[in-house]
Every structure is written in structure tokens, then in C-alpha cells.
Write a protein that binds this DNA or RNA. Sequence first.
DNA 1: CAGTGAAACGGAGTAAGTCTCCGCTTGATG
DNA 2: CATCAAGCGGAGACTTACTCCGTTTCACTG
Lengths: 183, 183
Amino acid sequence: MRADAQRNRDRLIEVAHEVFRERGLDAPLDEVARRAGVGPGTLYRHFPTREALHEAIMATWIEEVAGQVEKAMATEGGCREKLLAWFEEYVALLTRHQGAAAKITASLGCQDSPLRTKCQTYADANESVLAEMADNGVLREGVDNLDVCRLLGGVATMADQSSLAPEDVRPMLDVIANGVLKA
Amino acid sequence: MRADAQRNRDRLIEVAHEVFRERGLDAPLDEVARRAGVGPGTLYRHFPTREALHEAIMATWIEEVAGQVEKAMATEGGCREKLLAWFEEYVALLTRHQGAAAKITASLGCQDSPLRTKCQTYADANESVLAEMADNGVLREGVDNLDVCRLLGGVATMADQSSLAPEDVRPMLDVIANGVLKA
DNA sequence: CAGTGAAACGGAGTAAGTCTCCGCTTGATG
DNA sequence: CATCAAGCGGAGACTTACTCCGTTTCACTG
């Protein structure tokens, strides 16, 4: 790639990050172009669809996921506390941008979505946490990772759309934890 | 209201029902007007916002809710089976139109949404089912109706956006049921 | 059963956003 | 420094949301 193209691409991602945080993932793309000081044509050449731009944005979060798993697993207390700490991180990551939770989770089951690889990282992280629970013998039989990811995605989507505070999210995560762990 | 106005209003609701079922709740409103054989001005006079039209559409479902509660409570088996039957109905009702689940559930906590009265009907119905569970002594302590509604709304939203089949939704409802009922 | 005023209509028009096309510019290369 | 493909930008075509106002229609009254 030519140096100027690379520069524009980087700048677009940076600006998009900013615009999406301010106005949600549905913000006008021409605004991103304008603020980045490029024409719309340039934006669309680099990112043919809105989703492609979302994907580029989210690449930066992905790197944090592994760290968040570790952090959650280091929580004081038993398995339940660790699991809930992870659930809270999961929801916090998904709700970082307005509108992101629904889109990421929707692409979980969809093979051909460009977001697929990103949400796979979340799913893998959750799987590792569930595996830890299973190793400790506290996981119910028949609990499927994909289902838990979807449940958490649903909670994150609700939290996103209703602008719920963490203390309003917590009781929902409690119910899911109860449903996932042995009594 | 003048007779011609009433006629147009009825026709708009009827056509909107059709258009929204075909193309989702985000379908172009001008298309609704065109198919109904009225100008856009007429549509916007009767329904100033998209949400107002949604509300009118959903009024017809609301009447079914009470019946669905009864049907679910008549399910063969124990409390768990009844609860799951109701959960399945709840999700089915919310996913009847593409995009409806997220919007209805989002307006649950929001006092000033025009959808509020509609979703209150769902919340009340769910409350009555939870009360039945409590009466039978199978409900966990501290389970809140609003949280369960949001969880179900989240599941419905995921089902909607990923076009999940009932058999893919069921395991999520199982987890919620586990989380809501005593072990 | 006209006449009349208010209610309601319709559609042209404005605005906002998406996305493409193509003539011009610029960076890399020999 | 000449060349030319890669890349740029922005005008403009298209789509959808929503408004404004001249015209039509209904309901009521004498």
C-alpha cells in the first residue's frame, strides 16, 4: 500500500473511533470522511461497507479480551464471583460503543459476517471461562457456550439500548450465573 | 374524527402491518403511505413518528397476551414446564415483527416512550406468571420481574437478529428458567 | 338541499445520508 | 526527472424522512 493511502486509512480508523463513540455506530459515514479531511470516495475505497469500518474499529478491543479474562479469574472469592466478574467485563466490552453489542452478537452464528472473527474472540474467551468452571465441577450439565454468549449479548444489548447502569445489569447476570452454575 | 380520516387511519394501520411484516419495522414510511394510497402528509398527520405507528400496530397483539398466559399455564407438567411454555410465548410474541423485540424491551424502563403502555402489558403478564411460581414456592428469592423481562427481551432480540429457530432459543430459556427457579 | 367553514388531503419540495464515478493528483520506481 | 498506476476528492444520483400549503371533502346549518 502506498504511504499516503496507509496514512489516510489510519486516520480514518482513528476518527471513526471518535465519531462512533460520540454518535453511535450508525453515525453518518460522510461525517467520518469530513472530519478525517478526506472525500467520501476515499473512505468507501478503504472500507466498502459500514461493517468493514466497524470491524477495523473493534480490532483494537480484541487485544484486551485475554487480559480481561485473566483479570476476572483473579477476582477474590469462589467460582461464582469469578464468573460474575467475567460476565461484567464481557458486557462492559460489548457496550463500549453504542449499538455495538447487538451487531457483534448477531454475527456470532453467521459464518460470512466480517465481524465474525472479532466475536469469535469473545466466544473463545467465554469458552475458556466456562471450561474453568467445568474443571472445578461447578458447571451445570448441557450448558452450551454459544447460548451463554447470546444471553450475555442480549443483556449487553438491553443495557446499551436502555442505558442501564452496572447495578441494573448485575441482577440479570446473577440470574444467568444461577442458570449456568450447579445449585 | 371525520369518516374519511377514520377510514384512512384504519387502512394505514392495516397496510403498515403488512409492510412491517415484510420488510421489518424500519421499512420506509413513504412506502406505507404509497401502498395505502395516501400522501405522506396524511400518514404523518395520523402518526407523527414511526414509533406512533408501531404502537398502533402492536395494539392488536396486546389483546392476545392474556390468552397466551392462560394457555401457557395450562401446559401439562410442573412449574418448570409452565414457565418455559410462557417464556416461549413471550419470545414468540416479541419476535413477530422484525426489529420489534429490541424496541419494545428498550421502552420497558422508559416512562415517556409511546410504547410504554404496550410493553407494560407484557411486564404485567410476566409478573403474574412469576407470582404463580412464587405461590408454588419454586421461585428463587430476590428475582425481579423487570430483570426477567429484560432477559427475555434480550433473548428475543438475539433470536430476531440472528433469525434463530425455536430449538435454538430454547436452551437460552432453559438457562433463564434455571436461574429463576429454585434448584 | 345548497352554502359554508373547518378538517383533512396529497404531493411537491427540502433536507440528510449513502454510495459511485471519473477527471485530477501524487507517490514509487527505473 | 519522467512515467504511470495507485490513490484522491467531490460532484451528483439515488433513497428516505418529514413539512408546508393550496385544494378538496365532509358535516352541519338555515
